Amino acid sequence: MGKIRKTYDKEFKLQAIKLYYEEGMGSNSIGKELGIGISIVKRWINHYKREGIQGLEEKRGKATGFNKGRPRIEPLSDTEKIQRLEAENAYLKKLLALKKEMIQKRKP
């Protein structure tokens, strides 16, 4: 099982950024002052440089795209299941045919 990462709120991250820019503290000093890892402070500073205040917002759990994020709440309908399985079956048949072809080419 993986490690559970601690989540920090935006105000806490902003406090670290202010120490870096306004107080001129280094990431090592900020890490010791706030009791967090140096790499975390460096990551926050880089995100802030690239994206501004939005770079400090939590991004975990907001994945988008195909097959990312939380699973669907509603199960697939029967026709959607059949279509998905037919496409998977066709793909596997093509893969099997390619493997057979490669094996036949290797034989003398």
Rank of each mutant, 00 (worst) to 15 (best):
M1E: 09
M1R: 10
I4K: 15
I4M: 12
I4A: 14
K6M: 08
T7M: 11
Y8W: 15
K10R: 15
E11G: 08
K13H: 02
L14I: 00
L14F: 07
Q15M: 08
I17P: 06
K18D: 12
L19S: 07
Y20N: 07
E22P: 00
E23L: 07
G24H: 01
G24S: 05
M25P: 01
S27C: 12
N28Q: 11
S29F: 02
K32D: 12
K32Q: 13
E33G: 00
E33W: 01
E33H: 13
I36P: 00
I38R: 09
I40K: 03
I40Q: 07
V41I: 10
K42M: 06
K42W: 03
R43A: 13
R43S: 13
W44L: 04
H47N: 15
Y48A: 02
Y48P: 01
K49W: 04
K49P: 02
K49M: 08
G52C: 07
I53A: 08
Q54H: 12
G55H: 03
L56K: 00
E57H: 06
E57N: 09
K59P: 03
R60M: 11
R60D: 11
R60T: 12
R60I: 07
A63K: 14
G65E: 04
F66Y: 12
F66P: 07
R70V: 02
R70N: 10
P71Y: 08
I73N: 13
L76H: 11
S77H: 07
D78N: 13
K81M: 10
K81V: 06
Q83V: 07
Q83H: 10
R84M: 12
R84A: 14
L85V: 04
L85N: 10
E88S: 09
E88Y: 05
N89L: 14
Y91R: 15
Y91T: 07
L92D: 04
L92V: 03
K93V: 05
K93G: 01
L95G: 11
A97P: 03
A97M: 11
L98G: 08
K100D: 09
E101I: 02
E101R: 14
M102T: 07
I103D: 15
I103G: 05
K105F: 04
R106S: 15
